[in-house]
């Protein structure tokens, strides 16, 4: 294992250990997701949507729940470092890209935990039938990575701001909206066995996530140090 990767894993492991002891971000993510899911399943349920609209509307609802749950909890990674005054020592001890990769891994684990818990529950409660489960899983994985990489760099930016408040959501929305559209499209295609649309959507999702990864890797050292 390369030294860079070992150091990034150390940052992620430290954050996960601290998170599983305090559960601040995890509670925000899970509570938001469960509350929204309960509200959606209670008001809409599995039978109120027409058969032809179901795949699309359920895909929209699924990604809305995941998206807003992510906004509720994924900004903590950097804000917490600044608020607890641990950021200066981390800046001195670790290379910026190590910190970025570690925080990205941490956010990725949180969002995967959220999805692992939420998606099966959503499918059962809403009666969401998926025609291509493995392709659906691939869209979820790519979407989770896209969400994690985008929210990580935005969290780093807003942690430096004096007034954080709603800044995370305000900055995330325009950056994540195109990704969200393709995630909904890809999920619908996976549910209806529309292979062409699925491939096109997955390609777009991976391209956006890849572009954001490269952009973040270059931007992060500037944000983190200055």
């Amino acid at each position: 294992m390369s030294r860079w990767l070992a150091e990034a894993l150390a940052v992620a492991a430290k954050d996960l250990r601290a998170e599983f002891r305090t559960r601040v971000a995890l509670n925000s993510l899970v509570l938001f997701a469960l509350t929204t899911l309960a509200a959606v399943s209670y008001t809409i349920g599995p039978y109120r949507l027409s058969t032809e609209d179901r795949p699309f509307l359920l895909s929209v609802l699924l990604w809305i729940v995941i998206f807003f749950a992510a906004l509720a909890g994924l900004d903590r990674s950097f804000v917490k470092e600044e608020e607890s005054h641990t950021a200066p020592l981390l800046r001195l001890a670790a290379a910026p890209t190590v910190v970025w990769a570690g925080k990205l891994l941490y956010n990725l684990v949180l969002i995967m935990v959220l999805m692992a818990m939420l998606v099966p529950l959503f499918c059962v409660l809403m009666g969401f039938e998926i025609a291509m489960p493995w392709r659906f899983a691939a869209v979820l994985a790519a979407g989770g990575f896209g969400l994690a990489v985008t929210t990580t760099i935005i969290a780093a930016i807003i942690a430096q701001a004096m007034t954080r408040g709603a800044l995370f959501s305000v900055l995330s929305l325009p950056l994540l909206l195109p990704l969200l559209i393709f995630l909904i499209q890809g999920t619908t295609a996976a549910a209806t066995s529309d292979l062409d649309t699925y491939r096109e959507s997955l390609r777009a999702i991976l391209s956006m996530a890849g572009a954001m990864t490269i952009f973040s890797a270059f931007l992060f050292p500037v944000v983190w140090r200055d």
Partner: peptide
């Protein structure tokens, strides 16, 4: 550096803090 404005991780034990700083410093 030792400064009042710089803190170690209060959710971790002393050993875990040292392990972490040692690992990120390689």
């Amino acid at each position: 550096v030792v400064a009042p404005s710089m803190a170690v991780y209060e959710e971790l034990t002393a050993m875990e803090n040292l392990r972490f700083y040692a690992r990120v410093r390689g």
